[in-house]
Design a protein around this nucleic acid. Structure first.
Lengths: 136, 136
DNA sequence: CTTGACTTTTCCCTTAGGGGAAGGTGCGAA
DNA sequence: TTCGCACCTTCCCCTAAGGGAAAAGTCAAG
């Protein structure tokens, strides 16, 4: 085998996964990546296995999962257990969370639209100083 | 006049504004409230003017404004200038931000719903270990 | 030899406060 | 008087997911 194998430094691995080097160090620090092997000069050395792991992390992030949830999934997989039912439950919870967030934002948007309509139609001279601003 | 005047300590002011004492200290520290007068024992002493200022902060927060934006409004008012046109612009920007956030969450919701539908229908045995989890 | 690109670690920054520690103050009850 | 309780003070660490920057080491090319 070659002297250096398929040495991939952090920048290249990050580029391959569409992330930054900082993110990779952060994931390692927070247990989403195992401690990377180091080359003789101390540089992190990644394999294609790490790259696919990073791909999964990216897909999970794109689905709005928190790093802690992604870490759970990875932990199950690392334990040799299929995380599929757990992932299904996480996705169900994520759907409920998203529905709640959307409902909240839609309600806030309606309220802000009302304030803005009043502000757009009001006479700027009518502002009550004691209230700081009458539009809110 | 009475010895203690209308002394209102931080806890009572916070209750009156529907906040916590921590929030009031935080607002003072970050320039949304002027440095409170202190009583002889070092306790902060608030007036009704502060309470109405806190009410405005709460209304601004309820409208989804950031503390930095609320601070700008308060600064204008403190300068003697009516903040109304600025508030109107902030509300317009807030509307645009909310629309963007809602669109993003709705798109994410659709994607997650798709993942979840696949996960709910799939055979858990079919999960591909190399991909960590096939549902995402 | 030097320059430039890459890496390492470490520290501070972001939002809007929350939690808690350690200690001071004032009032009523025992 | 002393205890307990409620309240206050400052100080420090914590959140999520990294970003920015500093200081320093490594390596290949010009």
């Amino acid at each position: 085998m070659g002297k250096t194998g398929c040495m991939v430094r952090i920048g290249e691995a990050a580029r391959a996964a569409g992330m930054t080097s900082k993110a990779l160090r952060f994931y390692e620090e927070h247990g989403l990546l195992p401690a990377a092997k180091r080359t003789a000069n101390g540089y992190r050395d990644y394999t294609s296995e790490t790259i696919s792991r990073l791909d999964f992390i990216r897909r999970g992030r794109a689905a709005g999962l928190a790093l802690a949830q992604i870490r759970e999934i990875l932990f199950l997989r690392d334990e040799g257990r299929a995380p599929c039912t757990h992932v299904r439950d996480l996705l169900a919870g994520q759907l409920a969370d998203l529905d709640a967030q959307i409902a909240e934002l839609v309600a806030l948007r309606a309220a802000v639209a009302g304030y803005h309509a009043i502000a757009a139609a009001a006479d700027p001279e009518a502002c009550d100083a004691a209230r700081i601003c009458s539009y809110i």
